[in-house]
Design a protein around this nucleic acid. Structure first.
Length: 103
DNA sequence: TATTTGACCAAGA
DNA sequence: ATCTTGGCCAAAT
């Protein structure tokens, strides 16, 4: 039977699906929830995200409120966020602290 | 096995 | 607010 442990990437994805629309999280927050400080590795996991729409990786931003990156292009990330009611300005999410999702 | 690669972070200037 | 520096860690090469 399968005794496979979830890979680091998979753990990131299963956590991320909990983030509801209209909310955002940060690479750091995911690391904290996973009990790791592999912030950069988390970014890599998002970049490789194989489950594009299923995992809302566009809701993951940097700890300082700036956007971070997006495999499909930052413009896409911005429109997806705005569609969910999250406004951005010059690469920063406005009032992002009030929009953070708590794991 | 060893090295390189980043969608990061915190602190300092 | 911006920019630089050193640190960090899993996955890919």
């Amino acid at each position: 039977m399968s005794k496979e442990r979830l890979s680091f990437d998979q753990r990131c994805y299963s956590l991320l699906v909990k983030v509801p629309r209209g909310k955002v999280t940060t690479y750091k927050a995911i690391g904290k929830a996973l009990g790791t400080k592999a912030y950069r590795a988390i970014g890599q996991a998002m970049k490789r995200n194989p489950h594009a729409p299923k995992v809302p990786c566009h809701r993951v931003i940097r700890s300082d409120g700036s956007l971070g990156g997006y495999a499909g292009g930052l413009t896409k990330k911005i429109s997806l966020l705005q569609r969910e009611g999250i406004s951005t300005r010059r690469g920063m999410v406005e009032n992002f602290k009030s929009k953070l999702f708590e794991f």
